[in-house]
Computed example of a mutant assay.
Amino acid sequence: MLNESMIALFQQFFDQGGKVIPALFVLALILWSLIIERFYFIKVTYPKLSQRQIDHWSQRKDKRSWNAHKIRELLISKNNARLNLWLSSIRVLIAICPLLGLLGTVSGMVAVFDVIAVTGNSDAKAMSAGIYKATLPTMVGLCLALSALYFSHSIKQLVLKYSAQFEDRLTIRSNIHQHPQGVL
């Protein structure tokens, strides 16, 4: 549970980064929820689901007709759709992170230049706090995007691996390489 000092630390961080930091925090929650969901699905749910589909295919008597091939293609297509669910959303959220951080930097720099224009003071010490506040959102956005990019790539590699394995297992179970009556 969060104690008061940790809550104060988060509040200070949000205040230092401006209005974009809370938006990045919400974006991070959504992004990491999707990443964790995909890992959970691929590692826990998917093996049972794919095994049920392969068992269903194995119980079919007709595996070599045109209809059977189309059913097999449908199974592969549904399997790939399940594996790839949320991957494009994850990639879009990763792309938004640095852009949102950059928005925070631009708005922070505008505020710094506004203070300079109003006060007429270009003291470097006075501007340093504003520049820090302006660059913090970019750092947060880049760190979030880079860390999520690694896991997104890992998920994509798992999806490619499991998709190929599923297709191979259906092929082995159907003796698809043996063409009926020697004709394609």
Rank of each mutant, 00 (worst) to 15 (best):
L136R: 05
K43V: 02
P47I: 03
K156I: 07
H153M: 06
I42F: 01
S50T: 13
K78R: 10
L24W: 15
L102I: 08
I94P: 00
L24S: 03
I54F: 07
K133W: 00
M109Y: 13
F10Y: 05
Y132Q: 07
M127P: 05
V183S: 08
T45H: 03
D168S: 12
H153E: 06
I35R: 00
A129S: 11
K43T: 02
I176F: 14
G120Y: 12
K156M: 02
G18V: 09
P137M: 04
S122Q: 12
I42S: 00
M109K: 03
N84H: 14
S152T: 08
R38G: 00
I155D: 00
D15Y: 00
E167M: 06
V26L: 09
A23W: 01
S77L: 06
Y46W: 13
F10V: 12
N121E: 05
Y46A: 01
M6I: 12
R64I: 09
F10N: 12
S174Y: 12
A28F: 05
Q157F: 00
Q12V: 01
D168V: 09
A129C: 04
W66Q: 12
R72L: 10
Q51M: 08
F25K: 03
R72C: 04
L31K: 03
I7Q: 15
K78S: 06
R72Y: 12
Q16P: 05
R82S: 12
W57L: 14
A145T: 10
I90E: 02
R38A: 00
L85A: 08
L160M: 08
V92R: 07
S154I: 01
S128R: 05
A23S: 13
P47M: 07
V44E: 02
M6H: 11
V140E: 02
H56Y: 09
